[in-house]
């Protein structure tokens, strides 16, 4: 990386622009999900660890092939659901039985039974927000720039192509050489993609 005026300023290390790898990785373009899965399995056996697949629809068994762990989204949603439930009880109890005591036909100011509908609705509401916003957070969305989009056929992943990227961060990454390897696994077009 070229030296810049930033190097001479007393700026903490973590604020300085990160030195980027010159390449995102090598991306191959496959015809079918089955060929993609086969390529992933072969490369895993060969010792590659930093791989990412791109497809127009979720492919069954791809997480196992890539060695991805289970999504932690469930825990986020459960937490939000409990907060929603507790919040609904607190809201109905505090407004009705503490802050503004309104006697309606001599009924108790707070009871669990008439509170159930709103307890249910707020549980669902917060769980739904957590599911969507949690998914956004885990997927780093919105992110409008990603090095993958530098691949000349990146658009195929939202149409009918099944792409496999071996990332530059992989210890076994060997740049241009990998193109031949991906081609031999059935890739129709392999490319070294800039970061």
């Amino acid at each position: 990386m070229a030296t810049s005026f930033l190097d001479n300023l007393p700026i903490p290390e973590f604020l300085k622009p990160r030195e980027e790898a010159p390449h995102y990785g090598v991306v191959g373009d496959f015809d079918t999900p089955e060929e993609l899965l086969r390529a992933i399995r072969t490369l895993r056996v060969a010792g590659f660890t930093k791989m990412e697949a791109y497809s127009p629809f979720p492919i069954h068994g791809i997480d196992e092939a890539l060695g991805e762990p289970r999504s932690p989204l469930g825990r986020i949603v459960i937490t939000a659901a409990v907060v929603g439930l507790a919040g609904a009880v607190a809201l109905q109890w505090w407004t009705g039985a503490v802050d503004y005591k309104l006697n309606v036909a001599g009924k108790p100011l707070f009871a669990l039974e008439p509170s159930v509908p709103i307890m249910f609705e707020l549980t669902v509401l917060l769980a739904a927000f957590a599911a969507v916003l949690g998914m956004f957070y885990l997927n780093r969305m919105p992110t409008y720039y990603h090095a993958f989009f530098n691949f000349s056929r990146a658009g195929g992943a939202s149409n009918d192509r099944f792409l496999l990227a071996v990332e530059a961060a992989d210890p076994k990454f060997r740049g241009e050489e990998l193109k031949t390897l991906l081609d031999s696994l059935g890739s129709r077009h392999s490319e070294l993609v800039e970061a």
Binding site: E52, P58, G134, M141, T143, Y144, Y145, A154, S158
Partner: peptide
């Protein structure tokens, strides 16, 4: 910024 990556599809 959806990419259709396996890690995105998972979540």
């Amino acid at each position: 910024g959806w990419r259709g990556s396996a890690s995105q599809w998972r979540h």
